[in-house]
Nucleic acid binder design. Structure first.
Length: 280
DNA sequence: CGGCAAACCTGCGAGC
DNA sequence: TGCTCGCAGGTTTGCC
């Protein structure tokens, strides 16, 4: 489920266990993720202290004490789990296992292997192909109505597709785009250019609120930062429209039996959920 | 250039 | 029960 809020929740879960700690050992069980892992990754990480754990869009950034940064993307199915050493025996999709000097085992598990890791120099981080073209963080002040208006102007693609464009705004995925458009009462089919103006003014806070609430929900589910499962970043969340085809949207006063409720359509080969009554 | 479909890989639930 | 099909939260590539 990793979109921006999930990655941020993972970051917050890893932080107290990994930040400031030394990686006592690292095991690479499967080097062929979306891209091949860097050569000798385990050796290059072992003995390094983690100075800080940051996030950019959907990328985790583990800043090391030798000036390198370990970039981690969770892809579609990537997860991080925490357990006390020695930890469980590695399962079939536990591709990389990190162990800290104070006895925590952090496991990167990714069945579909769409995830990636790369090790790059801190001063070249911004030029990394995965990061170089990213748009602003949606929760930053740089993402405002003026910016959005300028970027949507003249674009003849549905607003749904525009918001999934990571060069426009970085970190939104399929779920939160659906949810943000719902809260802003904008049809996902509306052309981006026609969102400029009053709709863009509504859309910016809708995006920020949807993300902020999801992060809050993730944080509250991680009260002690290690759940029974040890799994980070996954939490119960009640979507307004996502995966709710045919059901009443939470704010709709009309009967779903008559309107059909939340509708599912396919845009750019991906499911979009929306309420045709509220979203125009 | 812009926009869309397909590809990458595996697991899961629905339906037969 | 067991099989096949469709679908899944991301990103890149290539085609029109």
């Amino acid at each position: 489920m990793p979109e921006l809020p999930e990655v941020e929740t993972v970051r917050r879960g890893l932080k107290p266990k990994m930040e400031g700690r030394v990686l006592a050992r690292v095991a690479v069980n499967r080097p062929d993720l979306r891209f091949p892992l860097p050569e000798d990754l385990a050796d290059r990480l072992a003995g390094r202290r983690i100075a800080a754990i940051d996030r950019r869009a959907k990328y985790l950034l583990l800043r090391l004490d030798d000036g390198m940064v370990l970039m981690i993307h969770l892809g579609m199915s990537g997860r991080m789990t925490i357990a006390a050493a020695p930890g469980p025996p590695p399962g079939p999709h536990d591709h990389v296992v990190f162990e800290t000097d104070d006895g925590w085992v952090v496991t990167f598990n990714d069945p579909r292997r769409f995830g990636m890791m790369d090790l790059v120099s801190s001063n070249a981080l911004g030029e990394h192909p995965a990061l170089a073209r990213l748009g602003p963080e949606p929760l930053s002040d740089a993402f405002d109505a003026d910016y959005l208006n300028a970027r949507l102007a003249g674009r003849f693609t549905p607003i749904k597709a525009a918001l999934l464009d990571q060069t426009l705004v970085a970190g939104l995925g399929n779920i939160y785009v659906c949810e943000a458009l719902y809260h802003a009462r904008i049809s996902p089919r509306r052309l981006a250019a026609s969102v400029a103006g009053a709709r863009a003014v509504r859309l910016v806070p809708a995006v920020k609120q949807v993300l902020a609430r999801a992060i809050e929900a993730g944080g509250s589910s991680l009260r002690d930062y290690v759940q029974a499962s040890g799994e980070l970043g996954y939490f119960q969340h009640a979507w307004a429209v996502y995966d709710r085809e045919g059901r009443a949207c939470p704010d709709c006063t009309c009967a779903p039996a008559r309107t059909g409720g939340v509708r599912r359509i396919v845009q750019s080969n991906r499911s979009t959920f929306f309420c045709p009554t509220r979203q125009r």
